[in-house]
């Protein structure tokens, strides 16, 4: 009996193999899940915050009559930067971004630079670009009378953005931002390419010496599914809350 528990079951024993993997490599899977969650949470929250900065820069109006040439130059530079940023990060695979960042910065021999830090940076920068687009469409969905009313009261363009436009645009964008979190749960698997010990990498490690990838990744699939399922239920709940407000108003 002792022998069966500690040694690997035969190839055709699918479920026994799964139990064996969980029993032997449980700590791998737990650590992998935690890293995947960390990447997704930091990526989505960090991406959300950075995307607000990006949105503010991108939404600046150039007033050729009132701005100095210096202000105009700075604004143009900023707007150009946001456009390039979003195009580049949405237009290239995150796996490629990870390679360039990790190996590009590694030669600087920064003491804090390791695969996990590189992974956190890449997922955050990548998510920033996507959420910036989400917020942009949220802003486009706000009636332009809202901005005009704020300006007519004496709010500056920036004050109007912060006090009137953002609160509404972000509220409308919350479900889509939740979806970005779900995407991150799954897509951070590619960060294993630079050695981040996420759920994908953990599963690879757990199955490399015994060569049982199907059983191992079956476990990973179930865990990913549980994570995304719970999150999508939470997002649905958020969306429902929004719909409910609208119904009360009608």
């Amino acid at each position: 009996m002792m022998m069966i528990l500690t040694s690997i079951p035969p190839k055709d024993e699918f479920f026994k193999t799964i139990i064996y993997l969980l029993d032997t490599y449980g700590s791998f899977f737990i650590r992998g899940v935690l890293i995947t969650l960390l990447l997704s949470v930091v990526g989505t929250v960090g991406g959300f915050i950075l995307s607000l900065f990006l949105t503010i820069i991108r939404n600046q109006d150039i007033d050729y009559k009132r701005d100095s040439w210096f202000e105009i130059a700075i604004k143009k530079l900023g707007i150009g930067f946001t456009k390039v940023y979003i195009t580049v990060f949405r237009g290239t695979p995150m796996i490629v971004q990870a390679m360039i960042f990790y190996y590009g910065i590694a030669p600087l021999r920064l003491s804090f630079w390791n695969p996990l830090v590189a992974g956190l940076v890449v997922v955050t920068l990548n998510t920033t670009a996507y959420i910036a687009e989400v917020i942009r469409s949220g802003i486009n969905g706000i009636d332009k009378g809202q901005m005009e009313a704020a300006r007519s009261l004496g709010f500056s363009k920036r004050q109007s953005m912060f006090k009137v436009i953002f609160p509404q645009a972000i509220k409308n964008s919350l479900p889509a931002i939740g979806n970005e979190f779900i995407v991150n749960l799954k897509d951070t698997a590619v960060l294993s390419v630079i050695g981040v010990f996420d759920l994908f990498k953990a599963t690879q490690s757990a199955t490399s010496s015994n060569y049982r990838p199907v059983e191992g990744f079956f476990i990973a699939a179930v865990i990913y599914l549980i994570l995304t399922f719970i999150t999508s239920k939470l997002v649905d709940h958020l969306e429902h809350k929004k719909v409910k407000v609208v119904n009360v108003n009608a």
């Binding site: 009636d143 809202q146 005009e148 009313a149 009137v164 609160p167 509404q168």
Partner: peptide, 11 residues
């Protein structure tokens, strides 16, 4: 200023 479409802050 008072607008045709009111433009109250909806939030």
């Amino acid at each position: 200023m008072v607008f045709q479409s009111f433009n109250l802050f909806n939030h």
